[in-house]
Write a protein that binds this DNA or RNA. Structure first.
Lengths: 190, 190
DNA sequence: TAGCAAAAAGGACAAATGTCCTCGAATTTA
DNA sequence: TAAATTCGAGGACATTTGTCCTTTTTGCTA
C-alpha cells in the first residue's frame, strides 16, 4: 500500500493517520497475464491503482479491429472511467499485458468516501483533472505528429511499454499500421 | 444566466435558490472576434461558460505553427484547464473565432466555492470527469481515422464549427494539411 | 527437442497525404 | 475605392503510409 499512499500524497495533502483510516476500503488483487480488469459491454464496478505490472485498454472499431487506446503503467490508475463514473456498460476492455498487482476500490465504496469526507471529494476531483490533462496531452500531440515522431516520442516517454507490449498493440496505440512501425524500427536500427 | 443554470443542472441536482445564492461569483463578459481569453505564457485566472459564440484553443509546435487543439462551442465551458487548475503559465491560447459572450469565474472565487460547499466540490469533480470523457473520445477516434473520415465526422458532429472556422484551423484541428482538406472538400462536392 | 502456431519483419505495389507553388476571390486597410 | 493582404482552391511532384502477401523468427507445447 506504500506506493499508493505516496501516489495520493502527490495529489492532495494527506497524513498517514488519514490514509490508515480509509485503507480498509481498498483491496489488493492480482491479475494474470492476458486476463481482464474490465470488459466491453460489462459495467465496470471497480477502479484501481497499479502497484506492479502493465495493462492496456482497447476498444473494437467498425472493422472489428482492437484499437489500443491506452497503456496503464505502474504507479498510475486504471479504470474504464466512463463506465465506472456513469455505471453504464463499458466501451473499453482493460487487459493485463503481464502479471499485474492492483489496489482496487469499488464504485459503492468510493461514493461512501465522497459522502464521508470532503477530502475524498477533493481527491476525486484532482484525479479527474489529472486524467484530463494527461489525455489532453496525448490527444493534441499524437494527432499532429508523423508516425516516426510518434514512435520516437513513445520510445523516449514510455520505454518500458515499448519493451513489453506487442508490435500490434503499439502500432494501434500510435494510430499506425504494423507495417509502418516495422519500417520505422528498421530505419532506427541502421 | 439561464443557459448556464441549465448547464449546471445537467451536471448536478441544483435548485434555483442555490443557483441564485452563488450567481454573484459569476461575471458576464464579451470578447470581440480574434481577441484572447487566454494566452500562451500567461497564467489563466479565469474559466468560462460560453453563452454565445465560438472560440478555438491552440498551441504552437516546434515548427512555430499554430495547432488548433479544440473548438469551444456555445453552452460549453472553456478554459486553459491545465493552467487554470495548476495556476501555472498556459501552454495554450484561447481566441474568439467570432464575437463571444462569456460567463466567467475567477480561480480564487472557485476555490472559495469549493470550501464553502460540497455541492461545488461535486460540480468541480463532475466537470473534470466530463471534460475527460470528451477528450478521451476525441483522442481515440481522431488518431485512428483517415483524413476523410475525420472531416466527415466533424461535418456531422460540429457543422456549425465547420462553417465558422478557417480552413487552416480546421485542418490543424484534424491533424491534416490544408491541401488534404481542400482535396476532401473537392471530392465531397462532386 | 521437434514441430507447430503465433508474432514480427519485410518485399512489391497502390493509395493517401504532404510540400511547394500559383492563381483568383474575398477581405481589410490606407 | 484602390492597393495590399489574407485566404482558399488546386496543379505537379515527392514522400509517407497502407495493403496484401511471403518469409523469418520466436515462443510454446506435446
Amino acid at each position: 500500500m506504500e506506493s499508493f499512499k505516496l501516489f495520493l500524497k502527490s495529489i492532495v495533502p494527506l497524513s498517514d493517520q488519514e490514509f490508515e483510516k480509509y485503507s480498509p476500503y481498498f483491496k489488493t488483487r492480482t491479475l494474470g497475464r492476458n486476463s481482464y480488469f474490465a470488459e466491453i459491454g460489462k459495467t465496470s464496478h471497480e477502479a484501481a491503482f497499479i502497484k506492479k505490472g502493465l495493462l492496456r485498454t482497447y476498444y473494437v472499431n467498425e472493422k472489428s479491429e482492437e484499437v489500443t487506446s491506452c497503456f496503464c503503467t505502474e504507479n498510475n490508475l486504471t479504470a474504464s472511467y466512463k463506465s465506472f463514473i456513469s455505471q453504464q456498460p463499458s466501451e473499453l476492455s482493460i487487459q493485463a499485458v503481464e502479471d499485474t498487482q492492483l489496489i482496487t476500490i469499488s464504485y459503492n465504496d468510493l461514493q461512501t468516501l465522497y459522502q464521508k469526507s470532503p477530502l475524498w471529494q477533493n481527491i476525486g476531483r484532482s484525479i479527474a483533472e489529472r486524467q484530463y490533462m494527461v489525455m489532453e496531452q496525448y490527444a493534441s500531440v499524437l494527432c499532429n505528429e508523423t508516425a516516426k515522431e510518434k514512435y520516437m516520442r513513445m520510445l523516449k516517454e514510455q520505454p518500458a511499454v515499448v519493451n513489453k507490449a506487442s508490435v500490434n498493440d503499439i502500432a494501434s496505440y500510435l494510430g499506425i499500421t504494423r507495417r509502418t512501425l516495422s519500417r520505422i524500427r528498421k530505419e532506427i536500427s541502421l
